[in-house]
């Protein structure tokens, strides 16, 4: 069993969460692309952390983001939901989870990383836009916002992960 890489987690936290906060709703492309890439920090928490802790981590991170965006409960709720299904989803996508501890683009391989991260980012974004919108009206706008923003956030998480976890290192 591998040890948890503390350095990687700290870098994830700084790069994904602390950079996100002042830039929330300032990084926008066009009129429907928002980057909520802080979710990457939660998704890339070590696999061996027990699920109640993951839920609490999701809740507190979401609440911090909520304070910055005037949406108490929305980001927190979405994060808790994503953290609840995270490990279940990881077991479905990745065949061999026995030796998995640190989650990054090397331990999951490229396709595994995409299959694991993107759907969860998408679910998170859909929940946020749906609740913020307060219903299913303007459905086309809603879904296009969710898809484009999820792609954008995912790209940022992916690139930052490449920068944080150098390829040469063995895990």
């Amino acid at each position: 069993m591998n040890r948890i890489n503390i350095r990687e987690q700290i870098f994830n936290c700084i790069a994904l969460l602390f950079i996100q906060l002042p830039l929330l709703y300032r990084i926008t492309l066009g009129d429907r692309i928002f980057g909520f890439f802080y979710i990457g920090f939660l998704l890339l928490l070590p696999f061996k952390v027990s699920r109640p802790y993951l839920l609490l981590a999701g809740f507190s991170t979401g609440l911090i983001v909520d304070v910055f965006s005037n949406t108490p409960g929305i980001h927190a709720g979405a994060c808790v939901f994503v953290m609840y299904i995270r490990d279940l989803w990881l077991r479905i996508v990745i065949d061999d989870t026995e030796e998995l501890t640190n989650i990054n683009h090397i331990s999951l391989k490229k396709t595994g990383f995409i299959l694991f991260v993107f759907p969860l980012v998408f679910v998170h974004h859909v929940i946020i836009f749906l609740v913020e919108n307060g219903g299913l009206h303007l459905f086309g706008l809603l879904i296009s916002k969710a898809i484009l923003s999820a792609l954008f956030s995912f790209t940022i998480v992916f690139v930052l992960n490449y920068l944080i976890v150098p390829k040469a290192r063995r895990i």
């Binding site: 109640p52 979401g62 709720g77 939901f81």
Partner: peptide
């Protein structure tokens, strides 16, 4: 079941926050 209970509890707190805000 414990995980699920925590999950439910936190979601209820979130919904309460959304509604009261």
């Amino acid at each position: 079941r414990r995980t699920f209970a925590i999950f439910l509890g936190l979601e209820i707190v979130c919904i309460w926050l959304i509604v009261s805000f």
